[in-house]
Amino acid sequence: VSFKITLTSDPRLPYKVLSVPESTPFTAVLKFAAEEFKVPAATSAIITNDGIGINPAQTAGNVFLKHGSELRII
């Protein structure tokens, strides 16, 4: 599955597209996205474009099915 993750704390709204296997734990996606944007993973969260928080204790495939591919990291 592929996710387009936007960094909301930067006024330029940079984004990265990450492709991972469906079975990947979403905690790993969060950690990798945080490292890519050089923000601390421990204090970061991934939310939907509607501002709904995503529980990272599920697979990337589940997140994709529930929330789609466009996400934000805060």
Rank of each mutant, 00 (worst) to 15 (best):
S19I: 05
F3R: 01
S19Q: 10
T43N: 08
V63D: 02
G61S: 09
P56M: 15
S23D: 13
I5M: 11
A34E: 09
G68L: 00
N55L: 11
V29Q: 00
T6Y: 06
L71E: 00
V63L: 02
A28Q: 09
V1G: 07
K31Q: 10
P56I: 07
G53H: 02
I47C: 15
P25F: 12
S19A: 13
F32E: 15
A33Q: 00
R72L: 05
L30W: 15
S23Q: 13
T48M: 03
F37G: 00
E35I: 06
F37C: 01
A60T: 03
A45G: 13
G68N: 03
K38Y: 07
K66V: 11
Q58G: 06
S44T: 08
G61H: 13
T48I: 00
L13F: 12
V29A: 02
S9T: 03
T59L: 13
L30G: 14
S23V: 11
I73V: 07
P56G: 15
F37N: 02
K38P: 03
V63T: 05
E35S: 08
S19P: 06
L7T: 05
F3S: 01
E70H: 08
N55Y: 10
P56K: 11
L30Y: 13
V39N: 03
V1F: 05
I46R: 01
D50A: 09
I5T: 00
I73F: 15
I52F: 09
Q58I: 04
F26V: 14
F26A: 14
I54M: 02
I47H: 15
L65I: 11
S2G: 03
V39R: 07
V17L: 06
T59D: 09
F3D: 00
L7C: 14
I74D: 15
K38G: 12
A34D: 04
A60G: 03
D50V: 03
P11A: 10
A42W: 05
S2E: 06
V1I: 13
A28S: 12
A45V: 08
P56V: 12
A42C: 04
A42R: 07
F26C: 15
P25L: 12
L7N: 13
G68R: 02
T43C: 12
E70Q: 09
V1S: 02
T48L: 01
V63N: 01
N62V: 12
Q58K: 08
P40N: 09
I47N: 12
N55H: 06
F26W: 15
G61V: 09
F3N: 00
P56H: 14
P25S: 12
I52W: 08
T59C: 08
T59H: 07
S44V: 02
N55F: 08
T48W: 00
G53K: 15
T27I: 12
N55D: 15
S19R: 07
N49K: 14
T43I: 04
S44Y: 06
A41V: 11
N62L: 10
P40R: 04
T59Y: 09
N55V: 06
I52E: 11
E35T: 09
T48F: 00
G68S: 05
S23R: 10
A34F: 14
K66Q: 13
P21F: 10
P40I: 03
G68V: 01
G61M: 10
D50R: 08
V63R: 02
P11Y: 03
A57M: 10
G53M: 14
L13K: 12
N55T: 05
G68E: 02
